[in-house]
Design a protein around this nucleic acid. Structure first.
Length: 326
DNA sequence: CGCGCCTA
DNA sequence: TAGGCGCGG
């Protein structure tokens, strides 16, 4: 079920944060948040991020700690939020829900058995983006004057569309799917401490002598978020087959393979629901006092947890502003 | 080369 | 979740 197969096909290089200076990145908000909640927060005490009534607000800490990385590199993030899920995605959502319930059962067992390592591992999988998390993230970003865009459907598709139009320079997501949505340049590992990876769409097509449509067909054979791959087809065989037979239909006729919903999934990647009704304001003027009040008073996050993050936001945004005026 | 299993 | 290893085709 390999999305990771795409990694073998993609042309990826390490870049330094310096080269991103002055650029705009359309960040897949759900992907970024999920990443933050499962990596950063996992190692720390849950209680810090939970309000008195048990509401999880670790996302607020994640936003405050995660934004300085962008600002200090003089990179403007645009957070793109998912809209409605497609029918196909519903299946996937359902599948994940079932899997999550399974994990939660296992988590119970592990807790009872006192297996701390297992508990930590399972906890990272049962994280989820609640309505409260999404809503409070939006509110905090608004207070910090960070631009957001609401996608009609897939946030990743919307981000890719914005990049294709030239309204942003990069898509930011861990997901290799961005390549299938035709995002020209995708940045991975924006949440981790090391250098980001840059995935190059045109270079990927050129490397394998494929068109965009053919690349999607290759992915359909290997497997995507929306379909299981065809048994026996990995990156190498799939590329070879598509090039030999032109497209998925050619492969189907000649090699007796069948991909369910192929035409719908193809369309999902090649012509997804996106909007051009958005504005991206790159000069950021955060209301830090209001943001602090929101996080530490309204949501009762320990002020010490976010003090350093707010300081970094304050100094980096002020510096950026000064640079802009010179 | 693909895949499943395992470990970090 | 990614990367390495050994099997089987």
């Amino acid at each position: 079920m390999g999305n990771a197969d795409l990694r073998d096909i993609a042309v990826i290089e390490d870049v330094s944060f310096d080269v991103l200076e002055g650029s705009v990145v359309a960040v897949d908000a759900h992907n970024w948040l999920y990443r933050y909640l499962t990596t950063t927060v996992k190692w720390t005490n849950d209680d810090i991020y939970t309000t008195a009534d048990g509401t999880e607000v670790a996302n607020l800490v994640g936003v405050v700690q995660g934004l300085p990385k962008f600002f200090e590199a003089d990179v403007t993030p645009v957070f793109v939020f998912d809209g409605a899920v497609t029918d196909l995605k519903d299946d996937e959502v359902q599948r994940r829900r079932e899997q999550r319930e399974q994990y939660e059962d296992q988590l119970e067992d592990a807790r009872e058995a006192g297996d701390a390592v297992r508990v930590a591992r399972l906890e990272s999988r049962t994280q989820r983006l609640t309505d409260v998390i999404l809503e409070t993230t939006r509110e905090l970003l608004a207070l910090l004057d960070v631009p957001t865009v609401d996608a009609p459907a897939e946030g990743e598709a919307q981000a890719a569309h914005m990049a294709r139009r030239g309204d942003v320079d990069y898509v930011g997501t861990e997901d290799y799917d961005a390549l299938l949505f035709g995002a020209p340049f995708t940045l991975r590992q924006l949440t981790s401490s090391g250098d980001p990876e840059l995935m190059d769409f045109e270079a990927t097509l050129a490397e394998h002598d494929l068109s965009w449509e053919q690349l999607v067909d290759v992915a359909l054979l290997c497997g995507t978020d929306f379909n299981d791959g065809v048994r026996g087809y990995g990156p190498k065989t799939a590329v070879k087959a598509v090039r030999e037979h032109g497209d998925l239909w050619g492969v189907s006729e000649n090699e007796d393979v069948y991909v369910e919903n192929a035409d719908r999934i193809r369309e999902l990647f090649l012509d997804p629901a996106v909007t051009e009704e958005y504005t991206i304001e790159t000069s950021i003027d955060p209301d830090l006092a209001a943001a602090r009040e929101f996080v530490t008073d309204q949501w009762a996050v320990d002020a010490e947890e976010v003090a350093r993050g707010f300081e970094r936001i304050e100094s980096s945004v002020v510096q950026t502003g000064l640079e802009d005026w010179t």
